[in-house]
Structures are given as C-alpha cells and as structure tokens.
C-alpha cells in the first residue's frame, strides 16, 4: 500500500473487535435461555403467569355440541360479559335504547336457527371463530387485527385506528365497535372508545395458565357442558378426542377459513 492515508487503522480494528465481543457476551445468555425456555414448554405452567413466548405448538379452539345447548340459557353470554367487562358498558345519556342495543359491544351471543327443509331447531352460542385464515386479519390496514401463534385472533388496541374494515370482512359478525367513552374497565380488557374488539378466547386466562374460558366454565357449571375448550393440536386433549368421535362442521365452511371453533349437531 503506497498511500500512507490508506494504512490500516489498528485502533479502529481493535475497537470493532472489542465491540463484537461485548455484544456477544451481553446477548448470548439471553438468546440461550430464551431458546431453552421455549423448547422446554409450549405453554404457560398451570396456574402461573406465562413465562415463555406464545408458540404455534398449540392451537386453541372449541367444540360446541349444539345438542347440549339449552334453549333460553344465556350462561355463556353472562359469563363472557362479566369476565371481559362487557357488563360495565353504560348507555350514554340521551341515547336511543333501541339504537344503543345495536351499538353495544358483544363478544358472544345465543342464536336459534331452524332448518328450512327439515324444520329442525338448533340453539348455539356464536362468537369469533378464530379462523386459521381470518379475513379480519387480511383486511386490517395497520396489522392491528392479528392472529397469535397459538391461533387466537384478536385486536391490538394500540394499533387499531377504528376503520371498521374488519367488521365488514368478518363472515360471522363477531366484532364490535366501541361507540362511546368507557368509564369503568377491567385491566385485562382495557376497552377504549373508537376501537374494535371481539372474543379472544379469554386470552388473559391463556397467559395465566388457566385451563378454560369463561363461557365454557359457565356452560359446564349450568350443567350443559355444550362448550369444550382445548388444544386442537394435542391429540390427547379432551377437545381433540371429542372432535375425533363427534361429527362436527365449521360455520360457512364454503369460505375455507379453517375455523378454530367447530359445531356438532348443526
């Protein structure tokens, strides 16, 4: 090298070497622990808060046996309302009750349908179906509507701009828009005016190591046991066992969304 200005700067090399060393020493233990922790367990330990990342080794879902769903029973709806603070919504002063009834948020509702040909009547709870290919996630411009690795479809309340395109796109009308200020809210469901929300399979329970959802628990407590919650990917789970035995189907299966919620007897 003839030009002295292009001589190798040893000081600079030394600095780069030290910086790389410090970075490795700082990050490596964290990366190692993170990998080990994820490999050790696909989900949180029962009864304890989640300490590991959500993985796709589980897929949460439900089987709803409509033959067990009792007419007139709304235990699942009340339990969901209580669990997720939906019962804390208040009608704004001066609002038209009939209109407010269509504006209030609801995560789960009871529906009674009759087959046009056979006349068979079926009762069932209807909520977000937690699709594998959710249209609400496809259409969301900001990515606020998302699917967790464990299959739960939900809304990131920090990214939602309230455009309601997901509500247009959902084939199950599972989503609600928050039409007014919310004075009282639960920390696990920090509801805010102007955002969209829907059933998230009691995601806080998933992250606290609890076994079931509020609706499934309430249905069992009412003596019906029509809602079975569990891991669709675990062949040994009661949900997978029941799905293997009982003929079930997806709602709007023509859309090929591969829903996480399945219905028997519809």
């Amino acid at each position: 090298m003839n030009n002295p200005s292009e001589a190798i700067d040893q000081g600079r090399r030394g600095f780069m070497r030290s910086a790389a060393g410090v970075a490795t020493v700082t990050l490596a233990p964290g990366v190692l622990l993170h990998t080990l922790a994820n490999a050790a367990s696909p989900g949180p330990t029962a009864g304890e808060p989640r300490a590991v990342q959500v993985t796709d080794q589980v897929r949460y879902g439900m089987l709803i046996d409509t033959t067990k769903c009792a007419e007139g029973c709304t235990a699942c709806v009340s339990a969901c309302d209580r669990e997720n603070g939906l019962d804390l919504q208040t009608m704004p002063e001066g609002a038209d009750p009939a209109l407010w009834d269509r504006q209030e948020a609801r995560w789960i509702r009871k529906v009674k349908v009759q087959d046009n040909l056979t006349g068979k009547v079926t009762n069932l709870p209807l909520m977000c179906q937690h699709c594998e290919h959710p249209p609400c996630v496809d259409v969301c411009p900001t990515g606020a509507s998302f699917k967790r690795a464990d299959g739960i479809v939900m809304v990131d309340r920090h990214l939602c701009i309230g455009c309601r395109y997901c509500m247009m796109a959902c084939p199950y009308k599972a989503r609600s828009f928050i039409h007014t200020n919310v004075e009282v809210k639960l920390t696990l469901a920090p509801r805010g005016k102007g955002c969209v929300e829907s059933c998230n399979l009691c995601v806080h329970r998933r992250d606290n190591g609890q076994a079931s959802t509020a609706c499934a628990d309430a249905c069992a407590a009412a003596g019906h046991g029509a809602i079975l919650f569990g891991d669709l990917k675990d062949p040994a789970s009661p949900l997978s066992q029941a799905l293997a035995k009982l003929p079930s189907r997806q709602l709007r299966e023509n859309l090929a969304l591969n829903t996480g919620v399945r219905y028997a007897g519809v």
Partner: peptide, 17 residues
C-alpha cells in the same frame, strides 16, 4: 343480513343477526 347459516332461518339472536 349475512348468510351465517345457509338454508336455515334465524329465529332468535342476541346480536341482531
């Protein structure tokens, strides 16, 4: 109305379906 249940009629709903 959305075609939630093709070939079936919704008799009652808690969410105006």
């Amino acid at each position: 109305p959305l075609s939630l249940f093709p070939d079936q009629t919704i008799l009652e709903s808690g969410f105006h379906d």
